[in-house]
């Protein structure tokens, strides 16, 4: 449990938010060209990092907007929050 600074609403309790998993997984541009291995990689394989990870979050019980977060999964410390479409901050 921690506080999240929603870029649209400000600081709110984590339970207002829904975690959306790993960020910056690009949807395949040519889905019909993909091999089964590439589909598996896109759909299922995850970095699941212990340490600093880039994630998507949704303010489900608030403004319902999506945004990105850089978070250390070993201690739940939030390093940065940035809007969808913005360039991820360099570490």
């Amino acid at each position: 449990m921690f506080l999240i600074n929603c870029p649209y609403c400000g600081e709110r309790d984590q339970q207002e938010f829904k975690a959306g998993g790993e960020a910056h997984i690009e949807r395949p541009k040519q889905p019909t060209e993909l091999s089964d291995d590439e589909w598996a990689e896109y759909l299922f394989m995850r970095k699941n990092i212990k340490g600093v990870q880039f994630e998507r979050w949704n303010h489900a019980h608030g403004c319902r907007k999506w945004f990105n977060m850089v978070r250390d999964t070993s201690n739940d410390e939030i390093k940065a929050i940035y809007k969808m479409g913005e360039k991820p901050p360099s570490q």
Binding site: E55, T73, N75
Partner: peptide
């Protein structure tokens, strides 16, 4: 919890 975490909390 619904987010990735290694905190054992």
């Amino acid at each position: 919890d619904d987010y990735v975490s290694y905190t054992q909390k």
